[in-house]
Simulated assay, not measured.
Amino acid sequence: MVVSNLRVAHYWLDHVYGALMYRLRLSPPFFSNGWGGARLVLLEQLTRQLISQGLANFSLKYWPPPPIDPVWRTVWESKAAKLQEGIFPTPCDPLVRECLPPESHIARVRLLMPRSVPAHKMACVVHLAGTGDHGFERRLRLGGPLLKDNIATLVLESPFYGNRRPRLQRGAKLLCVSDLLVLGRATIEEARTLLYWLDKQAGFSKLGVCGLSMGGVHAAMVGSLHPTPLAVLPLLSPHSAAVAFCEGIMKYGTAWEVLMRDEACSMTLDQVRERMRAVLSLTDVTRFPIPKNPRAVIFVGATNDGYIPGNSMLELQRAWPGSEVRWVTGGHVSSFFLHGKVFRQAIRDGVARLS
């Protein structure tokens, strides 16, 4: 009975948080400027072309990625560890770069690693941002305790977030639907380039990619497209952005009325939601190739997630035989704060399963 009550409490915490954030309109909704016009058309065409050609072929055609040469500065250092920040121009495809706001053209990362262990005796995991995760601190707190396991943490500041946020965008509320597609494409290309740099330039022995919620979707895509085995850790993540915006609580924070008016012929609410599903189906990770070592893929889901239905994560597991799903008791919001130990253990285990 106590466990049942806790599950209900966690589920309702998601809904209370969602009500405060979205239904009460305490902050602007997502996509308040509409679909994105010609940019959305271009991004849809680019993505559909990649899918039709085969994502496995894309992975090989665009490998190795463009080289980067980050400019580093030391944020702090102690006897045990060192935190550095690096910046570099985004290595995105020129067409994708044109769709990014100017503020997002320079990428920023932070690298946390022990001082006494050489890179070739360590693993490094790239942590990608979830919705609303500006800056670096949340993910550095998640990765920090892994230093004692010789696992370094590299945190990428997402396009449209933190110092890369467009001047007119408030918080994490993307102005156009096209922004969501270009954010994802840019994140994937930047993460692939960083993994190549960590391997060839920094010399880490094992690599992984991790993300929570939206970051988990991107982590799964990056892990799928990488030509060598990675530890892949999608945490509290759906198999597609369509689940988050059309089924979960975030549907209450979407500017459906604006999207209805933003087409040449006005659409009904049902029609605009179907249009949204069609656009966001391009983010369906079950279409992506199985990662090179599916045993090193560990999904972590929450039993009472009001944002991400549990069956969404199971779709990914079915698409990637050999992967593992673990569950924590809680909702989307509470699990982030309460289950860091479980997330870290998944990272340890995923890295350990690499040969």
Rank of each mutant, 00 (worst) to 15 (best):
N163W: 07
G162S: 06
E190A: 08
V177C: 04
V177H: 06
L156E: 02
L140Q: 05
S178Y: 02
L156M: 02
S158A: 15
G184F: 11
G144N: 09
R192E: 08
N163I: 01
A172Q: 15
L181K: 03
R170A: 07
P159V: 14
R170T: 14
R164I: 07
E189A: 13
T187K: 01
A191H: 02
K148S: 10
D179V: 10
L154S: 04
T153Q: 00
E137A: 04
G162Q: 14
R192C: 12
R165Y: 10
L183F: 13
G143V: 04
D149G: 02
R192N: 11
G184V: 07
G171P: 15
F160Q: 06
L140A: 02
R138V: 00
R138K: 09
A191N: 00
S178D: 07
L183W: 08
I151F: 04
V182K: 11
G171T: 06
A152N: 06
R167L: 13
E189M: 14
R141M: 02
R138C: 02
A172S: 12
L140C: 08
Q169P: 14
G143L: 06
G171M: 11
G144T: 06
D179F: 05
L183E: 08
I188M: 09
N150W: 00
Q169E: 15
L181F: 03
L154I: 08
L174W: 08
K173D: 07
G184I: 03
D179W: 06
R192H: 09
T153K: 02
A186G: 13
R165Q: 12
N150D: 05
R170W: 12
I151V: 13
D179G: 07
V155D: 00
F160T: 06
S158E: 10
N150A: 04
S158W: 09
R167I: 14
L142Q: 00
V177K: 01
P145A: 10
I188Q: 12
K148A: 07
A186W: 09
C176I: 09
E189Y: 11
R164K: 09
R141D: 08
P166Y: 07
A172W: 10
R170P: 07
L175K: 12
Q169K: 13
G143R: 01
L174Y: 10
C176K: 11
E189P: 04
N163R: 15
G184T: 12
G184P: 05
G162W: 14
L146V: 01
A172L: 08
R164D: 04
P166Q: 14
V177G: 09
S158F: 05
I188S: 05
G144W: 14
G144K: 11
L175H: 03
P145D: 03
E157L: 05
L181M: 12
K173L: 14
E157M: 08
I188W: 11
A172N: 15
R138D: 07
L183R: 06
A191M: 00
